[in-house]
Design a protein around this nucleic acid. Sequence first.
DNA 1: AACCACATATTAATAAAACCGATAGATTAT
DNA 2: ATAATCTATCGGTTTTATTAATATGTGGTT
Lengths: 311, 311
Amino acid sequence: MWFNARTRRPAPMHFTLRQLEIFLAIAHQQSVSKAAVELNLSQSAASSALKELEQQFDLQLFDRVGKRLQLNAQGRTVRTKAEHLLAHAEALEQTLLQQTDARHLKVGATLTIGNYLAVDIMAEMVRQHPDANIHLEIANTATISQKILNYELDVGLVEGELLNSELDVSHWRSDELAVFCSPTHPLAKKAAASQPITDQDLLTARWVLREPGSGTRQAFERAMQGILSDLTIAHELQHTEAIQQAVVANLGIGCLSHITLKKAFAQGRLVHLPVPQRDLTRQFYFIVHKQKFVSQGITQWLALCRSLSVG
Amino acid sequence: MWFNARTRRPAPMHFTLRQLEIFLAIAHQQSVSKAAVELNLSQSAASSALKELEQQFDLQLFDRVGKRLQLNAQGRTVRTKAEHLLAHAEALEQTLLQQTDARHLKVGATLTIGNYLAVDIMAEMVRQHPDANIHLEIANTATISQKILNYELDVGLVEGELLNSELDVSHWRSDELAVFCSPTHPLAKKAAASQPITDQDLLTARWVLREPGSGTRQAFERAMQGILSDLTIAHELQHTEAIQQAVVANLGIGCLSHITLKKAFAQGRLVHLPVPQRDLTRQFYFIVHKQKFVSQGITQWLALCRSLSVG
DNA sequence: AACCACATATTAATAAAACCGATAGATTAT
DNA sequence: ATAATCTATCGGTTTTATTAATATGTGGTT
């Protein structure tokens, strides 16, 4: 039967929580447009949400006097009850949130980020929340984004920008690559004498680099545009540590994220070669799934990321 | 900020009442498919609603053991709270419904229905609900459906089927047209002698009919198909009473809905001419707007329509 | 072990809805 | 008057809900 026969238990609701939210905002602001701003909505969306609620029940919630909306008697009754319902709903949302296993967090990161940044954040996270159980997965950007789309990972920390309407990509921090050589390399003296390293120096040198396709290599190639095809690439290795060893052994000069080199520079094992004419910065990004609610755990992780990235 | 910064009052809800309904049905039935049946939903819709709720909060509500879904601890907590929330929502829906001005009902009907059926129903409605305030509007089917689409009318009672995805068209009752003449017309004797009226009789007679485009005329033309173009249409009038007067004055024979002729037949003012070889039945329909909630008043009106149509 | 009956999950396509930008129409303030 | 501001509405786009069909998995039966 197509009219409401009020049969059994499962009575379908003819309004939505969203409609109530919008109605309450309008009632509170006494204005559709202000409510729309409050809710980050277009004025037309708010207007038609209200219209639909009123039409659905053949009900006038507001008296339209001039351009102002004035809650009428019916509207006031509905308002208080709707407020209670929404409060109730919010309470349910809270329990829903608390039910989520906030201790278990699955983070994906690219190699550089994972080994040199994520572990620090992870350590701090565990220090602050001893019961946290964080799984860190190292993979390339494509794999990580795929796993986030598939709800296999909660957060991703990646290097490359990527476009996907299902993903929320947000800037985290910038990173600087550094060109470096061994202390016994000819260019080391130049650097020690505060002489600038020229493009000619870069072209003369032999390079030890990360493999093509890695984020670090991509950033390097972007920085070297114009002279890239004339560079001499002696070796390609997949790990930063291996590259550093190769450079120490004077198999060539290298280019890696500065953060992976800090210790080596401090210990004098490797020498930083400033290349001011080349822009060696790149950006790191967070990615999360747009559809997934951001749990307490994720929020904490992201807050840590931001706070540690400034220090 | 794209993560949950928990700022001010208006906290958007990340679940819908619909999702809760579906979750509860699944929990109650311990089965997605049975719940789907209960809710008049496809199994896949129920499944993905549940999936979305779980994913949204990164939560497991059920343990998937074999093919059975077993509520787990988290699920049980959520269930009771969700039940409360839904009960609360249902209460709000009730007040929303009671707020609607059930006494004010706007009914649209075509001429025949409006003058001979709707007035009776209206009278009975007022008898049962003395405070009812019913507005009856007579118009053709197109106008009525347009006004219902525009929320200017609550219910329509019409003759022609019509297809519109926004309208809920539902069968009400069947109606019988009757061919009739004055007692002094030659065919009256034939009828009195229980002789059948032949198609030849219909072709020889002069007709007094409703105007083209009216539902009655359309039904007549459908009934007369095959001989329609050879009929002699002497007069076209817009009102049933005028047609009856014309037939009494022997300007021709007529064809109108039987219900409009009952009294005239009983009084002997007009004579019924049975035409068994022609199908003179037609159907009456209710129409309501699909989007509009069916209020108490509409429900009562429709119930009355159904109950009075059998008597 | 092969098969059937049945249950959930997934996919691809479609129907419905939420939403936005632009704009009309109406009202207050200047 | 005129500008500024508000609500309502229209046309179009994006999201979401839903379905039919299908894959996948499970338990019972031969």
